[in-house]
Amino acid sequence: MTSSPQSDRSALRHEPSSPQPAISLRGVVKRFGDITAVDGLDLDVPEGTVMGLLGPNGAGKSTTMRMLTAQSLADEGEISILGHPVPRESKWARSLMGVVPQHDNLDEELTVEENLRSFTYLYRVPRRERAAAVERALRIAHLEHRRDTFTEKLSGGMRRRLLIARGLVHRPRVVLLDEPTVGLDPQVRQELWGLITALREEGVTVLMSTHYIEEAERLSDEVALMAKGRIVRRGAPADLIAEYAGRTVEEYAVGLDGIEVMEKTLHAAGFTTRRTGSALSVLRAEELPDSLRDQLGSGMRRASNLEDVFVTLTGEKVE
C-alpha cells in the first residue's frame, strides 16, 4: 500500500475523517517458526470508532498490536495507519498514534509528571506546548494530585491510568490499547472504561484488544472476534449477539448422564448449545418450544452475550 500526497497532508493538518479506514490490515500473516500467530488477517477500523479485538490468550491480538507499531514485522500482507504504510512509514504513523502496552513499562525512578514529560520529548511535542500537554494528560488521567509521586508508589490502577495518559500526551488520532484493564479490580476497570468512552466521544480511533467480554460489549462500536490468528466475525456487539445467540440463553443442569441425549435433541430441533461442565446452555432460548422446555426441566435465563457468540463460532472460550 502506498501513501498518497493527499493522505500525508491530511495527517499533517489533522483534517476530519476521510473515507479510508484509520487502521487497515490486508492478508496479514505473522509466523514465529512453525507457529502462525496471525493467519491472513483482514481488518479495517473506520476513523473515529472503537474497535474491540476480542479473543482468548494466544489468538494473535498482541502480535497484531505489535505489527501496527512495526515492533513486529508481518511476513505477508499490508498494513496502513491513517494512510501510512507500515513498516515503511511507521515512524510517521507512530507520531499520530498513542500506544498503551499490556506490560507496564513506566520509569520507576521518575515521578508521574516526569514520566509524561519525558514522552513529550519522544513524541516531539513542541517546547512551548510541553507543559500544557503534560497538564492535559494529568487531567485526563485524574492524576493532578499525584504529579510529584514516584511511579513506584502508585497503585495498580493509577499506574494503568498513567500509562494511558502517557499514550495520549501528544493527542494522537489513533490509540492502541493492548488489554487495557487486565489484572485490575472492577472499580478501576470502570474508571478506565469511562476514559475510553470519552476518547470515542472525542472522535479518536481506538483499537482495543481484550479478552473481557463485558469490556468489548460496552465500549466497542464494533468487535472483531479473533481466534487462531484470524478474524472469525466482526460487527456491532448487539448485531452479532442477535445473529448468533438470540436474545436469551437458558442454562440447564441436566447432569453428565443426560447431557448428550439432550444435546442431540436440541440440535435436531435446530438449536445451538454449549456445555459448561454438566450444565447445558441453550442459545436463542426465547424460541424454545414448551415441549422441549418440559424435557429440560427448570433452567436459568440470562441475556445472551459475546461469549456465547464466540463459543458458537469457534468452539473456544474467550476467558
Partner: peptide, 13 residues
C-alpha cells in the same frame, strides 16, 4: 475518570 474535551483538540505533535 470522566470525559474531557481535551482529546478532541488538534494534535500537539
Amino acid at each position: 475518570m470522566t470525559a474531557t474535551r481535551d482529546t478532541a483538540a488538534p494534535a500537539a505533535t
